[in-house]
């Protein structure tokens, strides 16, 4: 069912294309940099540093989450791209299982997202955050989990998306709300109850909460983490499994 050579070569293709398309890398990196240094600095002057850290430091875990969110969704949307330009057919008529295609896409999307999250961490010295090697490793591990979960969600959507026309809808009605309702930019604890429920069904909330555990270790809510770390990791892991299985299933359907 799961074939390793096809998975390997599907990943290899995505990596090659990712590093060849410099504009894509630049695009995903520009967004968090803009937030951190432009919006972050603007807000910094508005919000007095509380409990020992600045607004800039507060949104940093969210920015890693945002980088992963956009990168993962873009990676999985490449399925729609492949379909539109015919390359998907080359994979669909090959003697490989649909599951292998889905896993190949999920793994490559995960690696590309994690790579970008790591690149974002280069900004750390400019933010006045002190990071130990252990913390760095923890961020990478959480990144892998969150990236895999969101990439699988993206594949699930891409499997149902028939053209690029649906892409803007996904951006406006899924990706942006996921970002704003994740606690990436402000504490979600002060949101109205209805919106609070939405934050609780948002996988990114738990991902960013886990990043806060690692990066804002000793701070209490509302600025610090909301759930226990174990809950965060468990929810993301379970969601990742559900997403990848649904993605594989939705890909298996044919006429």
């Amino acid at each position: 069912m799961i074939q390793f050579r096809p998975i390997y070569v599907i990943c290899l293709r995505e990596f090659k294309k990712f590093f060849r398309e410099k504009s894509r890398l630049l695009g995903t990196l520009a967004r968090p940099v803009l937030w951190l240094f432009v919006v972050g600095n603007g807000m910094n002057s508005l919000i007095r540093p509380q409990v020992g850290f600045s607004y800039l430091q507060f949104i940093f875990p969210g920015m890693i989450g945002m980088t992963i969110l956009f990168s993962s969704i873009f990676s999985s949307i490449s399925i729609v791209w492949d379909r539109e330009f015919g390359f998907m057919k080359e994979m669909l008529v090959a003697p490989i299982s649909r599951v292998s295609i889905v896993i190949g896409k999920a793994i490559s999307g995960t690696f590309i997202s994690v790579a970008q999250a790591v690149i974002i961490m280069v900004l750390i010295p400019f933010l006045g955050i002190h990071l130990t090697v252990l913390q760095f490793i923890e961020v990478v591990l959480v990144s892998i989990l969150v990236s895999f979960c969101i990439t699988s969600l993206g594949i699930l959507i891409a499997a149902r998306l028939t053209s690029f026309d649906g892409f803007n809808i996904i951006m406006n009605f899924l990706v942006m709300p996921m970002l704003f309702l994740s606690g990436a930019m402000y504490p979600v604890t002060s949101l109205p109850t209805a919106l609070r429920y939405l934050t609780h069904v948002n996988p990114l909330t738990y991902g960013i909460d886990a990043f806060k555990h690692v990066l804002l270790r000793n701070s209490a809510p509302p600025l610090g983490p909301e759930f226990p770390l174990a809950v965060d990791l468990l929810v993301v892991t379970i969601l990742a499994f559900i997403m990848i299985i649904l993605a594989a299933l939705s890909f298996r359907q044919k006429e």
């Binding site: 096809p6 390997y8 090659k16 294309k17 060849r20 398309e21 330009f85 008529v93 090959a94 003697p95």
Partner: peptide, 30 residues
């Protein structure tokens, strides 16, 4: 495994080289 296909519309990856397209195919067909 027994068939080769050439579709109406091109199904090559334009972001890869000729060699990479062929190698991708070879891996898929083991």
């Amino acid at each position: 495994s027994s068939i080769g296909l050439i579709f109406q519309d091109t199904t090559l990856d334009t972001g890869l080289t000729a060699y990479e397209n062929l190698k991708f195919h070879a891996y898929l067909y083991n």
